[in-house]
C-alpha cells in the first residue's frame, strides 16, 4: 500500500501525520517505509531519528559541447525551447540551470559534438529508524526543479506492506510528482480559512488524478462547520481529528513523536489506521 500524506497548505501537519502513522503501522506489525518527498525542506528525520546508512547523489543530464567538433549550425539552440543552449558564431554555450534535461540537443547534433553529463541536483538518504525503512530526499540549494529528486527518492524506497510518502506542500508539480502513482492520499488540513482554501485545491488534484482520498484535520475544533461541509460535498471522509493542544505542539518543537509524548494520541492514530484500512480494504 502506497499512501501519500499531502495537503494544500504548508504547516498543516503532514510530517506529524506521516511519521506518527509510520510508527503506528510498525507497532501493528506491518513493514513500513517512510519516504520524505518534501525535498525542499525535509524534516521527517527530526522525529524518526534514523541511522542513515547511505547517501546517493541525484543528478540530471545536461549537454556538454565539444567545441572542436561543433559546426556552429545552431540546430541544438533551435530545438531547445528553454534557451538553455545558445549557439554563437564561435562558441556554443550551455546554461545548466535553464536545461530541462530533454536530450533534444544531443539528438539533433549531426556533428556528434554534444554528449550528456550528470549535473548534481540533490541527494537521497536511506537508513533505518527502528523497524521503519527511512528514505529522504534533499534538493540542492539553487536548483529550480524538485521532481527529479522526488522521483529518485521514491525509487529508493524498498518494498514494504505500507509505504508512507510525506509530500511537499502545495498542489503544483512537486506534490503531484509525489502523489501521482499512490493508492491513497491522506490530506491533512486545519480549520482555518487558508487551510480550507488549500484543502479545496488539494481535493481537486486528487479528483483530477482519480486518487481516492481521506482527510485528517489537525488542530481540530469542535465545530469546524465549513471543513465538514466541504468534505461532505466532496464525498471524502474525515478519518481523524488531531486536537488543537499545546502539548502536541510542544512535543513537535522538541522533535518528539506525538504518539510517544502525548497521552491519548496513540489511540487517535490507532483509530486513523483502522479507518484507513477500511477505506483501502487492506
Amino acid at each position: 500500500m502506497k499512501l501519500a500524506v499531502a495537503s494544500g497548505k504548508g504547516g498543516t501537519g503532514k510530517t506529524t501525520v506521516a511519521t506518527n502513522l509510520a510508527v503506528t503501522l510498525a507497532r501493528h506489525g506491518q513493514t513500513v517505509g517512510y519516504v520524505d518527498c518534501d525535498v525542499e525542506a525535509p524534516n521527517g528525520h527530526l522525529f524518526l531519528k534514523p541511522d542513515v546508512a547511505r547517501e546517493n547523489p541525484v543528478g540530471r543530464l545536461v549537454p556538454r559541447v565539444d567545441q572542436e567538433r561543433c559546426l556552429h549550425c545552431g540546430d541544438c539552440a533551435r530545438i531547445c525551447r528553454f534557451n538553455a543552449i545558445v549557439c554563437l558564431p564561435e562558441q556554443t554555450l550551455v546554461y545548466d540551470e535553464l536545461c530541462h534535461s530533454c536530450g533534444g540537443c544531443a539528438l539533433v547534433c549531426t556533428a556528434g559534438a554534444i554528449t550528456e553529463a550528470s549535473h548534481p541536483m540533490g541527494v537521497v538518504k536511506t537508513g533505518l529508524a527502528g523497524k521503519i525503512q527511512f528514505v529522504s530526499g534533499t534538493l540542492n540549494v539553487g536548483e529550480a526543479a524538485s521532481p527529479p529528486v522526488i522521483r529518485a527518492t521514491k525509487q529508493a524506497a524498498p518494498p514494504a506492506d505500507w509505504t508512507i510518502l510525506d509530500a511537499p506542500p502545495g498542489t503544483a508539480c512537486p506534490m503531484i510528482e509525489t502523489v501521482r502513482d499512490c493508492h491513497y492520499v491522506l490530506l491533512v488540513t486545519e480549520p482555518t480559512p487558508f487551510g480550507l482554501h488549500d484543502l479545496r485545491l488539494a481535493l481537486d488534484v486528487a479528483k483530477t488524478l482519480k486518487l481516492p482520498c481521506g482527510v485528517v484535520v489537525n488542530r481540530a475544533q469542535p465545530r469546524m462547520t465549513e471543513t465538514r461541509e466541504l468534505c461532505e460535498s466532496a464525498r471524502v471522509p474525515i478519518l481523524a481529528e488531531i486536537p488543537d493542544a499545546l502539548d502536541i505542539a510542544k512535543a513537535y518543537s522538541q522533535g518528539q513523536l506525538a504518539v510517544e509524548a502525548v497521552p491519548g494520541l496513540q489511540q487517535t492514530f490507532d483509530q486513523l489506521l483502522r479507518r484507513l484500512r477500511a477505506e483501502v480494504h487492506n
Binding site: 539552440a77 525551447r81 528553454f82 534557451n83 545558445v86 549557439c87 554563437l88 558564431p89 546554461y95 535553464l98
Partner: peptide, 16 residues
C-alpha cells in the same frame, strides 16, 4: 514571450 533565457537568446540573435 520566452519562458526563460530571453537574455541569452537575445545575445545569440545579435551575435548571428
Amino acid at each position: 514571450n520566452a519562458v526563460q533565457g530571453a537574455g541569452v537568446q537575445a545575445a545569440q540573435t545579435l551575435a548571428r
